[in-house]
Simulated assay, not measured.
Amino acid sequence: MFAVYAESFSPEDPLSGLTIGERPEPDVPDGWTTVTVKAASLNHHDLWTLRGVGIKQEQLPMIIGCDAAGIDEDGHEVVVHSVISDPSFSGADETMDPKRSLLSERYQGTFADKVTVPRKNVVPKPESLSFEEAACLPTAWLTAYRMLFVQGGCRPGDTVLVQGAGGGVSTALIALARAGGLKVFATSRDETKRQRALDLGAHAVFETGERLPVTVDAVMETVGQATWLHSIRSLRVGGTLVTTGATSGNMPPDMGLTRIFFLQLRVIGSTMGTRGELASLVTMMDATGVRPVIDRVLPMEDARQGLEAMAQGDIFGKIVFTR
């Protein structure tokens, strides 16, 4: 079958290990199902895989891609949940399983004609969502949903700051926060991205690091080192910072620890989301009419072009591949 896969790793030149060609069809263990992929979306995780992060040499070749929407063996249109818990895990929240993995880490990914997943890892796709839109949800949009409404505990009327408008998670955060009745602030170094954040639903936008007119109830932090201290300084007493990424680095020169303990701030990590949360997100999208921001749609044969754009940061929203 057709597939886009990592054949080698290179931290400095990740695309050098990318191969587009043929791979064997996946095995189907008991309790799993095969999904014929109609659309799959790109994530930074895919670039990290090509850099050799979270995967070992002996696992190569590995089909990359976490997200997909398609048709299962019974002919149902479905969205694929890419968090796969260990068979020994008995908890309700698979993101808390220390042995969990994502598609393209231990199991072959979604940039292919077909992908296999446990039957419990598929969620019905409503007719109102296209395959391209649905394929954007399982990683970036699910991450945003959990950050806002589960880990962040945001409620209608709260004020939230989204750092670094432009990426898949941050655009999802803006759209979902607005749909959920929150007052939304967003930051970006880029004037065009600030304007697009306003178009997406942000109530106000600011340059990165600019002082806000008020302190906020919650900050959604995906940037890390470059914005961390600004995030801490932007919170009200008792406010919440939810972090899910560190694209600019892990070590801010000033962590703001004094402010964290003096103002009794909460700093909470968040990773992906559960199958149940994905189902709730899909229902929310269906009910509200909110749709993912799609930067571009490309045939999967042009996956290299999409990965190059992501590596250069030349995107606003999600890149989607179709079959």
Rank of each mutant, 00 (worst) to 15 (best):
G273M: 05
Q163I: 10
E58Q: 13
K193F: 03
A218G: 03
P124H: 09
R259I: 04
G306Y: 01
V79Y: 04
C154P: 03
D254Y: 09
I268S: 02
N121R: 00
S170Q: 06
E277P: 06
K183S: 14
L235Y: 10
Y107V: 03
R296Y: 07
A197W: 00
G109M: 09
T34G: 04
H45D: 06
W48Q: 07
K56R: 14
P156F: 01
Q264W: 12
I232G: 11
L173P: 08
T215S: 14
M62V: 09
R211F: 05
A309I: 06
R323I: 05
A311N: 13
V290W: 00
M284N: 05
E132D: 06
G166T: 09
F321K: 10
D97I: 12
L173T: 04
T283I: 01
D286G: 04
M284S: 13
L148W: 01
G209A: 01
V78P: 02
R51L: 07
M62I: 13
L148N: 07
V216N: 02
T244S: 15
V184A: 13
I84C: 13
L265Y: 04
L265Q: 13
A311Q: 14
M285H: 01
K99R: 15
E22K: 15
C154G: 01
C136E: 10
T95F: 07
T208H: 06
L42G: 10
W228N: 08
C66T: 15
V282T: 11
R100G: 02
G276V: 00
V4I: 12
E77N: 09
R178A: 15
L50D: 12
P118T: 01
H44C: 00
S88Q: 08
V205C: 05
A92N: 11
M255F: 14
A204M: 03
E7A: 15
F111K: 09
A177F: 04
I260M: 11
A144H: 10
